[in-house]
Design a protein around this nucleic acid. Structure first.
Lengths: 210, 210
DNA sequence: AGTGCTGGATAGGAGCACTATCCTATCCTA
DNA sequence: TAGGATAGGATAGTGCTCCTATCCAGCACT
């Protein structure tokens, strides 16, 4: 398959494909000659994945690169690879640098309380959680002291279900694809359902109120 | 309070404050003279809110404008105002235009199944949900037929809890602020917890696997 | 009296994700 | 075997968003 066919069958322009190859998101085609390369189904599949991640999840190109690199590193275990994926997909926000021992402690407490004993003590996500907690505390959002207790079992159920869906009879690349799609697309699915539920519950309380 | 004090007490530069005023995100100060205006606590509060939404939620400036406009429209009920907020905050993604009756039907089924009877039949969120469902179906993500049944009660519990937290003894602007912060910051909180839970569950299944 | 800060206007700039152009070598159909 | 189409590679440019910088005339404090 030549580059123009790859472009046609994915709906991605030739210029963009070249750009992705330059950025290392897509391997160059197998060279047939100096001026001709061959692309296969793997390229189609990868390109479709990249487009979903960008269109649905607005994942930055740099994060896509990190995902590709994590997939390529065959010395890491599947779990380590998934950890890299989580780190790469966290980039959506810019929480101002938090060096606050108190909120970090609260974050660790939450992870303990949830029973997530397998989370690395140095996982970057813990600091991110601390940053979000700081914002929640500072922003005057009404939060009851038992708030976390409400969320944790629900989130644990969701994440457990999603992980259970992953088909582990496939190769690492296919598993990574499932994991990343799950993170991004099902994350979006979740937030979308939550907004719908907000609308419903908001109507129950506030429909008649001016 | 003059503009430089407003800048100092919020950490936002004078130039940026001027930009926000131009864009209608912040009302101009009360004019004391031709070349001097007075800013008050409302401006500080609003500015802090705007920064949280941008820093944590990466909410685009245009969406912030829509939120401000919705708050200002005093003819709408609180529930309608919240609806506007949901619409404005959905902009994160660009699902290619879906004109697919099948997925739209699936989306409506999900809303029914969840019992969210108060969601407007013409809510834009329904089409967004349809788009996400289409992506899920097309992307080869493994999904069991009962998937929605797993998510719905969990999401409903989360959204119900969040709405219950809103303090309705305050004025519309304060309630809007709580709603929007809840959507954005608690949404981020939720996704962050979910990633941590993914790491834990992934370790249970894949720690030793190469 | 003079330094400095104000609101207002407008121009400039950084970053991101492409997109367009140019070039020469090869392909491939005729 | 001629010759337009297409390939890959390099590089520059575009459109968008979100600021940031500069300029200006004039009121304000000391």
């Amino acid at each position: 398959m030549r580059i123009s066919e790859l472009a046609d069958s994915t709906g991605v322009s030739v210029a963009t494909i070249k750009y992705y190859v330059r950025e290392g998101l897509l391997s160059p085609g197998r060279k047939l000659s100096e001026r001709l390369a061959d692309y296969d189904d793997q390229h189609v599949r990868r390109l479709r994945l990249l487009r979903v991640l960008r269109d649905v999840g607005a994942v930055p190109v740099g994060a896509l690169k990190a995902l590709v690199d994590a997939t390529q590193d065959r010395s890491a275990s599947v779990h380590d690879m998934f950890g890299e994926a989580c780190d790469a997909l966290r980039t959506e926000t810019t929480i101002p640098g938090v060096r606050d021992d108190h909120t970090r402690h609260l974050a660790d407490q939450i992870v303990d309380q949830a029973g997530w004993t397998n989370v690395r003590p140095d996982a970057p996500e813990r600091n991110h959680l601390a940053g979000i907690i700081k914002v929640i505390l500072d922003s005057g959002l009404p939060t009851d002291p038992e708030g976390a207790a409400t969320y944790l079992p629900l989130v644990d159920a969701i994440a457990g279900y999603e992980l259970a869906q992953i088909d582990d009879t496939q190769d690492r690349e296919a598993m990574m694809e499932q994991m990343v799609l799950g993170q991004v697309v099902l994350g979006e699915f979740l937030l979308c359902l939550r907004r719908l539920a907000h609308e419903h519950h908001s109507a129950l309380r506030f429909a008649e109120r001016s």
